[in-house]
Amino acid sequence: MSTSSALIETSHLIKKFGDKVAVNDISFNVNGGEVFGFLGPNGAGKTTTIKAIVGLLQPTSGTVKVAGYDVQLQPMQAKAASGFVPDTPNLYMKLSARELLRFVGDLYELKPEKAAERGDELLRLFDLADVRDDLIDSYSHGMQQKIALAAALIHDPKVLVLDEPTVGLDPKSARLIKDMLRQMADRGAAVFLSTHILEIAERMCDRIGIIDRGNLVAVGTMDELRAMGKGERSLEDIFLALTGGAEVAEITEVLK
């Protein structure tokens, strides 16, 4: 259910680390109301692309726009419109969940009362209300992941970027997050997520982008991706065909 306006626009994005090209001239859009899945093998350039979108890395060339704002030229506006959940939830371990959410509320200049109200709401939703005053260093990985998501949602962003959001989550929490992301998209937000779980991508995402060795090798809906291939039906087969499934055979050979 995508709205017409593109909330994430990458144009000829290139990121090099020394001589190594991590992301090579990729361009794609994610519209409001859309859940966009970003797939790729390990080291393909997914996290680098994500970091360029949320302003953690300066691209070598090309542009990234979030909610219409250039992330490099108008970083404050672009960042104010987006929320980010990294693959490893590094959080301030000596703060409690409530203090962390209040801190994030301050960074986004939310009114303290509103931030507290929304923080409590999110903590209740993620089943963390009972531990909201415990220090984060006493939380499990899954709980920290949920706090990171709550922190990304506290200012109700137009654009949500998630790097492997379901890693370390129990099935109930994973389901909750999937439902929540769908709801956000239905309300007009753009949700950009990277995942290795192809089943999640196939079921949740309106469109999928596949990156391999820094190149965007395919973008489209499931039907469009199927049409591009040679008769593969499942996303797994399409993914392996596009990113070199021959490696699977090699792995089997090594394990013999």
Binding site: L56, N90, L91, L107
Partner: peptide, 14 residues
């Protein structure tokens, strides 16, 4: 800030 710096860097703080 250590590894938590991403929180400040992705926030709209100049």
């Amino acid at each position: 800030e250590g590894k938590n710096y991403w929180m400040l860097k992705t926030a709209p703080v100049g």
